[in-house]
Each structure stands twice: as C-alpha cells, then as structure tokens.
Design a protein around this nucleic acid. Sequence first.
DNA 1: TTCTATATTATAATTATTCTAAACTGTTGA
DNA 2: TCAACAGTTTAGAATAATTATAATATAGAA
Lengths: 142, 142
Amino acid sequence: MNTNTNFIEKLRSSGLRPTKQRIKICEALFDRNETFHFTINDLAKTIEEKLNEKISLATVYNTVHAFKKKGYLKEISINSDKSYFDTNTSVHHHFFDEDTNELIDCNQENIDSINIKNNITGKKINSVEVLIKVASDYQNQK
Amino acid sequence: MNTNTNFIEKLRSSGLRPTKQRIKICEALFDRNETFHFTINDLAKTIEEKLNEKISLATVYNTVHAFKKKGYLKEISINSDKSYFDTNTSVHHHFFDEDTNELIDCNQENIDSINIKNNITGKKINSVEVLIKVASDYQNQK
DNA sequence: TTCTATATTATAATTATTCTAAACTGTTGA
DNA sequence: TCAACAGTTTAGAATAATTATAATATAGAA
Ligand SMILES: [Mn+2]
Ligand SMILES: [Mn+2]
Ligand SMILES: [Zn+2]
Ligand SMILES: [Zn+2]
C-alpha cells in the first residue's frame, strides 16, 4: 500500500510510533478525497465494520486526541451530548442542521471576513468561527 | 418580596407551577442587573451556598430545561465537557477565553452584521452566531 | 536479538446527565 | 374549606461519554 507508507512517514515525522492501530485510523480518516465530521463512536464503528479491524475504544480515544494535539484533527462542540471531530483543520464556519443533527462545512467565501472591533484586553484572537443553525422552513417548534 | 411576586406571575403565566424550588431558581438566575453564563453545577452550588437552600440536582436539571423550553434560558456548547447556560436569550456572539474557560458576551455592534451568501437549500436560518476563541498573547501551546 | 520506552487493551472509574418511582404539593372545583 | 389529582420534587439508580489503571504487547534503538 502506497498510502500506508505515507501515513507511516507522517506519523513518524510527528513523533508518533506508526503502530498497526494508528495506521488503520489514518486510513479511516485520511484516505479520502473530502474532509468530514465524525464522532469517536462513528469512527470505531467504521473501523470495525468497514475496515474489519477491532481497535479498543480507549485506543481510538487516545489516537484521536493525539492526532488533535498534532493538528491533524479539530474538535467541534455543537451540542453537549457528544463531541464531533473534523478532518478539516482549518478555521472555518459550519452549518448545523437541527433537523438531522448534521454538521456541514460552510465555504469561507460564503461569508465576508469578520472584523472584531474590540477584542478583550491582553488577549490574542485564536479563531473566529460562525455557526449557522438551520432547520426546515415549516415547524418552528423543536 | 416584590420580585418573587413577579417570578410567581411569570411562572404561572407560562404554565409552570410556582413551586418553592422554581422561585428560588428564578431568584438565583433573574434577580440581577446583568445576564450571565453558568453551568448546572454552578447554579446548584450558588443556591446551596449563597441562597442557603438545598434543591435536588434532578430538580435543578428539570427546571433549567423547563426554563430553556420556555425561552428563559439558552444553552451554549463550547467544549464537550459540560453545558453552559445563558440568561441572555437573544442571538448573540461570544468570546471564549481558553486560559480561564470563561464565556464572555460580545456586543452585537462589535461585529458587523453577517451575510450568508448561500444557505442550504430548503432550510431556514435560525441563528448566526460567532465564537471568538482568545488566549494570552504568550504561550501558544495548550 | 535484547532492551526499554511507548502503546494497546480490557476493565474499572469518573462525570455529566437522565430515569424511576415513591413522596409531596399547588391548584381547582365541589 | 378541603379532598382529589395532576404536576413536582427527590434520592438514588441507570446511562453514556470519556478517562484512568495497570497488565501485556510492540516499535525502534543498540
Ligand atoms: Mn441537554
Ligand atoms: Mn475532549
Ligand atoms: Zn468542518
Ligand atoms: Zn451569552
């Protein structure tokens, strides 16, 4: 596998041992054309069902957090129930579909750049992100 | 207490029985000049320590959710660990101080109105909110 | 190959939140 | 006024997401 060689290099170069499990998780996450959003449970299920590998849930948590720390993943909090992760690590905006609980990337060009007139004194702005909550046009009640 | 009479009316008019506990929680939440952010645990502690009343945690959860449903509170998800609630129920932006985990309101005039050029087809925009993550100028690592 | 730091794993622990079911209370209408 | 009942509170159990533990396994260096 050519891609696996890349993953091994990527892991090694960031100081992570390229273990069987980490490589599998790389496959599940980065062997794609498009970025996507997932929960830890989604990921564990995908690996078990589609990639036919059983990785301990603790390892999936550890690896996802290690990848986040290395900047390969980004964590997104929309509702408090569970945490979403994003393979798109750039600062970017989201639509959140309240009907389906789906998180959808919003192109940066879709929103004009946002200017913060007064920042908190003594602090540096790390990110400015917009969350657009949408729902079906009918039924306003949730 | 004059305010309590108001709380009783408010509760009654929204179809919630004005129980001792709900009135206490109203006091803790709405007997102030400024809106604020809190977690359920903060609230339970405040009631116990400052208002010298012990309310079951289940009741605090129930009441906060009932108030949210009635539109008196708003839930905010910043990190997945716990849920923040806001007595400012308007659509508004936030600063989140990553050093202190503090959530701070951002005046609407502090950001020019945001125009979404392309919305998701068939969906209505319910809210557009900005989250600005800030941290101390030194130390970039978390 | 051997050694050691790291990583994985099953499992237990923790934490936030929700559920349950019994006891209690605000409201209503006789 | 007060009994009756629906709605509410409560302690504690249950759940679900996540993290900690500690024994076992493995990658990489020597
Ligand atoms: Mn909730
Ligand atoms: Mn986390
Ligand atoms: Zn995204
Ligand atoms: Zn706020």
